[in-house]
């Protein structure tokens, strides 16, 4: 399954963290470290393969662990209503 950031969200990197504002739901999410990197990668349209590559390059983590972490984080984002499944 491929995913994309929902259209009604505003986000911006400020003071080293990515702040995501879901205005209709009056919610704010704060992403740092790998989470911020993944979010910005998704925003740039990167694939999971690209994201894993970026994670292993940026952090002390092997490919298998990075992929597992990425899948968990994407699941969390889907459950939080920040991502939607994209039809291929």
């Amino acid at each position: 399954m491929t995913v994309e950031i929902k259209k009604n969200l505003a986000y911006r990197r400020i003071a080293g963290e990515v702040f995501v504002v879901d205005a209709p739901r009056s919610e704010m999410h704060e992403l740092n470290g790998p989470a911020a990197l993944i979010w910005e990668g998704l925003a740039a349209g990167k694939t999971k393969k690209d994201l894993v590559k970026a994670m292993t390059a940026e952090f002390e983590v092997d490919g298998e662990t990075a992929l597992a972490d990425l899948e968990i984080f994407i699941k969390d984002l889907l459950e939080s209503g920040l991502l939607s499944a994209k039809s291929d």
């Binding site: 259209k7 009604n8 969200l9 505003a10 986000y11 911006r12 400020i14 702040f19 504002v21 879901d22 205005a23 209709p24 009056s26």
Partner: peptide, 12 residues
């Protein structure tokens, strides 16, 4: 103003 445009401005 709950529109995404307003949220973007607020963050900016």
């Amino acid at each position: 103003d709950k529109t995404p445009g307003a949220a973007e401005r607020v963050l900016k």
